[in-house]
Simulated assay, not measured.
Amino acid sequence: MTSIPVQTRQFDSRDPVAIHEFLSATYDPKLRLDSRNRFRLTHHRVDAGPFAIATTRQTGHLDIGASTLDGLVLGHTRTARVDRVCNGPVNRFGPGDVFLVTKPEEPCTVRWHPGEVELCVLDLAVLEQVATTAPARRPGRIRFTDLGPADQALARQWRTTTSYVRDVVLNNPSVSAQPLVIGNAARMLAAAALAVFPNTAFTEPTAADRHDASTATLRRAISFMEDFADRDISAADIAAAAGVSLRAVQLAFRRHRGTTPMAYLRRIRLARAHRDLLRADPRQETVSAIASRWGFASHSRFTARYHASYGVPPRETLHA
């Protein structure tokens, strides 16, 4: 498997020209920036291929116009107040709020007051992976119908998800170097975005999907997962290999296995990790390295899942 390069970028400046050049190069070549006073901007961003997470703080009052962003940009105000305008009324967000900074390909203006904001930038292809249906029934580009979360419980879900990805995945170089971990994290963020922010993604299975949710579909899907468990595959890839829609393969696993395709894939990968632990030389390998190789970013979660399945902690298997 090819590793996805995870790159960290730091920026700290009081020069308005340098700040504008940095933000334009990082987010939008046509970005407009206006400030009524001098200010300082600090920016810490980790790029992980299909997504990026950044923490940025500034000390002034900035008006920012964005027009050509291709991805979905989601914000979490930590201490700042942000006013967002796009062909309508002003939407105001304060400390603790989560919101859509930009919708795909939709110009907007943001007034950013002093303070800190966390940003998550998602590749649209990941959203489509998570929400796609069969090509003949694909509803087109996903539209988000509101800037804020559906409710506060979902807002907490978004904050929890980004914290996990930032602290457990991206802050651990040995973990973040694994393609399966990065792919899982990207889809986790995409699934959370689709769950938290109202949108038009297709969710209900059709009559054709119910017909296709057969044991034959299940066998084709499992065979593909067994063959490619070491690859960064998505539920959409599994459905395509089985020759049915995503909804059909999800329904097949729920109907015949009482689980989801990705949960079943995690079982396969757990079994592969178990095999590697049995074969490994404890002087050369560690539990964490084997777990992350198979897509498990959190050592504690992997240990708990392994113990529940095999009756012993993974370290005991490694040193047996």
Rank of each mutant, 00 (worst) to 15 (best):
H43E: 14
G94P: 03
R138T: 14
T303L: 11
Y264N: 11
R257L: 03
T215V: 15
D34V: 05
D281P: 02
V85T: 11
L251M: 02
V244A: 06
E105N: 13
P173E: 09
R38Y: 10
A192K: 00
A216P: 14
H211W: 10
P179Y: 07
P16N: 03
R272M: 08
P261W: 00
G311C: 03
A134C: 08
V130S: 00
A239G: 05
T132W: 13
Q157C: 14
H20T: 14
P114T: 09
A190W: 01
A235M: 04
P104N: 10
L124M: 06
A195T: 13
L147Q: 08
R272F: 05
S309Y: 10
Y264H: 04
A18W: 12
A201W: 10
P50W: 08
G71K: 02
E21Q: 12
T8A: 14
F296A: 01
G243F: 03
L124C: 01
V165W: 07
A304H: 03
A177L: 04
A25F: 05
R159L: 02
P107E: 15
N171D: 13
R257W: 05
T79I: 11
P205C: 05
R305L: 11
Q152H: 13
M225E: 10
I233F: 02
F51C: 08
R141N: 11
P179D: 11
I290S: 00
Y310M: 03
G49T: 08
A280F: 06
Q157L: 14
T162K: 01
R210E: 15
V101Y: 08
P313A: 09
A54G: 03
G115K: 06
D47L: 02
A271R: 02
R272K: 12
S288T: 12
I53S: 08
F144V: 07
R255T: 06
L124E: 06
E285W: 11
A241N: 05
D151A: 02
A125W: 02
R159S: 02
F39E: 07
L218P: 04
S163P: 12
L318W: 00
